[in-house]
Amino acid sequence: MLKYVVKRILMAIPILIGISVIAFFLIRLVPGDTVTALLGVNYNEEQALILRAKYGLDKPLVVQYFIWLKNVVAGDFGNSFFTKEPVLSAIADRLPVTLQLMFMSFLYSIFIAIPLGTIAAIKRNSAIDYGASFLGLLGVSVPNFWLGTLFILFFSLNLKWFPSGGFISFLEDPVQNLRYMIMPSVALGTAVGAVVMRMTRSSMLEVLGQDYIKMAEAKGVTDRRLIFNHALKNSFIPVVTVLGIQMGYLLGGSVVIEKIFSLPGVGQLSLQAITNRDYALMQGCILLVASGFVIINLLVDIIYAFLNPKIRY
C-alpha cells in the first residue's frame, strides 16, 4: 500500500512541473504585458523599460521561469503588480471563502444525491426512480450561473429570504454567513449532486444484481442490512472516483458562482487577475487551482485503493 501511495505521489510531480510551465508561459502569451497595463494611457517607452527591469521582465523567458519557480518552491509567489500585496497572502485571504463554498456544495450534493440515487436503484422503474432520473438529467443540464440567477430572482428579490450577494465570515457571524452561502452552494452543487446521484443509482443497480446480494437475500438478510452492510459500501467505489472528478468542477465552477453572488473568493480573484493582466497573481491562481485539482485526484486515487484493495496500477 505504501509503495503504491509513494508511486502515485511521484507520478504527480511531473504533472505539477507541467502545470508550472503552463501557468508561466501561457500568461506570457497574453497580448500587452503588465507594464503596458500598469502605465495605461501614460505609457512611454522609457518608463516601460525601467519598470520591466524593476520586475525582471527584461530577462529571457526561460531565465524568468526558473527564477519564478525557485521563488515559488521557497513559498514566494511574488507580489501583485497592482495591489503590491504578496500573491500568497492575497490567495490565502480568499481561499477560506472558496473552500467553504466547495465544502458546502459538496455536502449538499452528497446528502441529496446518495440517498436519492440509492432509493431510485432499490425502487427501480417506480415513480421515485423516474422522478430522480429526471431531476438528475435536469441537474446536469442546467447551467449553474443561470440557476444562481434564478435563485436571486426568486429567493432574494421576490421572497427576500436570502441576500442576493456579498459575504460575512463564519467566525464573525455564523448565521449570517450561512444565509450568504446557501444559495451559491446549492447553485454550484446541483450539477455535482446530479452526476453523483446518477452514478450512485447505476452503481447500486449493478451491485444489487451481484450473486452475493442474491445469496444474502436468500439467507433472509433484512432489506436494511442488505443495503447498508452489503450493497452501499461496494457501490461507493465508482462514486468516490466521480466525486473526485467533480471536485475539479466545483473549483472551476466557483469562478462563475463567486462572480454572480459577489463572493470574495479565489474565483473572483482569478477573474480580477485575468482582467487586469496581473501576471504574478494569475500565475499564482492558475498554479493553485490546477495543483489543488491534482492533489484532490491524488487523494481520490489513494482512497480508491483503500476501498478496493484489488486496485494497484
Binding site: 497574453v30 472551476g252 482569478s270 493582466r277
Partner: peptide
C-alpha cells in the same frame, strides 16, 4: 502527459485563461 496536464485545469478556468490570451 500532455493530456494529464490539460486535465489538471478545471475546464471553465482553462477556457477563461485562453480567452484572456
Amino acid at each position: 502527459r500532455i493530456i494529464d496536464i490539460m486535465f489538471s485545469f478545471p475546464d471553465i478556468f482553462l477556457a477563461l485563461v485562453i480567452m484572456a490570451i
